[in-house]
């Protein structure tokens, strides 16, 4: 701090940092390494650190366990719910940022819906979707137990509060003067929103969309209860390698890698906004 020269304290700090990083990254390394191990290498005592890599586990996950379908389902559910969240969320969020309807109370109510423990509302969801699934509307819109529509609805509801809060912070960053001058140029309120506000908020909207996607991709509880096999998503697929007969560790780790690594890449791409997203926009980071 005082001088540019490297002090002993600096060296110690970096060493500690290195050790802490290794501890925190080790499980991810071990997951990836195990996924390339052949079955005998996975069940050795003590565990092996060196091995000949093989793709057998991935082959098993995709060919025998139908993992491609689960990825497709997840992409469908996550994608559609994110689009809905962005459409409804950006309108509402802009309104809260500019006009503050409800004086904070509605915003707070929205936040509490996000804080709800999923398990507390899952039984009603389960019963309602079971009913709806037997009606014609439910069949046509694919809403019901083990149908993607059910998860799309659930993820939209779960992500809307988050998206409204996060985008709120981005909309507030847009100077009001820009909107005023647009209005003086003869733009209406709606034109101003579309032509001036939305382009300026585009990075925020993109960040919100990626966070929503990540949430839907990683969600487990609702997917586990509301789907069986047709609409199964990736996280439930990973847990499916646990059976009464035992646990297929090899394919399980391969599936976990497929489930986790894309999100790690998303997170790295988002890192500038990570803190902002994690705090619902409260800390700018």
């Amino acid at each position: 701090m005082q001088s540019a020269k490297t002090s002993l304290g600096d060296v110690i700090r970096h060493l500690v940092m290195l050790v802490v990083l290794i501890i925190f990254l080790f499980p991810i390394y071990w997951m990836i390494a195990t996924s390339f191990k052949a079955a005998p290498d996975i069940l050795t005592r003590p565990p092996t650190w060196t091995f000949t890599p093989t793709l057998d586990n991935y082959r098993f996950a995709f060919e025998e366990a139908n993992f491609g379908l689960y990825i497709g389902n997840t992409l469908l559910v996550a994608g559609v719910s994110t689009i809905l969240v962005i459409i409804f969320g950006s309108l509402a969020s802009y309104s809260f940022a500019r006009y503050n309807p409800g004086d904070g109370h509605i915003m707070f109510f929205i936040l509490t819906t996000r804080m709800m423990p999923g398990i507390a509302v899952i039984i009603p969801f389960f019963l309602i979707f079971r009913e709806v699934g037997n009606t014609d509307i439910g069949k046509a819109l694919l809403i019901g137990l083990d149908r993607p529509g059910a998860l799309i609805i659930v993820y939209t509801v779960l992500n809307l509060p988050f998206a409204i809060w996060l985008m709120h912070s981005f909309f507030q960053d847009i100077p009001k003067e820009l909107e005023h001058s647009a209005r003086l140029d003869g733009y209406g309120r709606i034109q101003t929103f579309i032509r001036v506000v939305l382009p300026l908020a585009a990075p925020g909207i993109a960040v919100t969309a990626i966070f929503s996607l990540m949430f839907a991709w990683n969600e487990f509880l609702f997917a586990f209860i509301l789907t069986r096999d047709m609409a199964r998503t990736i996280t439930v697929g990973v847990s499916g390698f646990i059976s009464q007969q035992g646990i297929l560790w090899g394919p399980l780790t391969a599936a976990a890698v497929v489930c986790v690594v894309p999100m790690l890449l998303f997170a790295l791409a988002l890192q500038r906004y990570m803190v902002r997203g994690l705090t619902f926009g409260a800390v700018r980071g």
């Binding site: 990083l21 925190f24 990254l25 499980p27 991810i28 071990w30 997951m31 195990t34 996975i42 069940l43 050795t44 005592r45 565990p47 990540m214 991709w217 990683n218 487990f220 990736i234 996280t235 990973v238 847990s239 646990i242 646990i247 560790w249 399980l252 780790t253 599936a255 976990a256 489930c259 986790v260 999100m263 790690l264 998303f266 997170a267 790295l268 890192q271 990570m274 994690l278």
Partner: peptide, 25 residues
């Protein structure tokens, strides 16, 4: 690098930890 554990699906990495916690292997 510190961001990485946060982004992982808790169920997927939880199962990996279950393997890492395994009493024998």
């Amino acid at each position: 690098l510190f961001i990485l554990p946060l982004a992982a699906s808790p169920v997927a990495v939880g199962l990996i930890w279950r393997y890492m916690y395994h009493p024998e292997f």
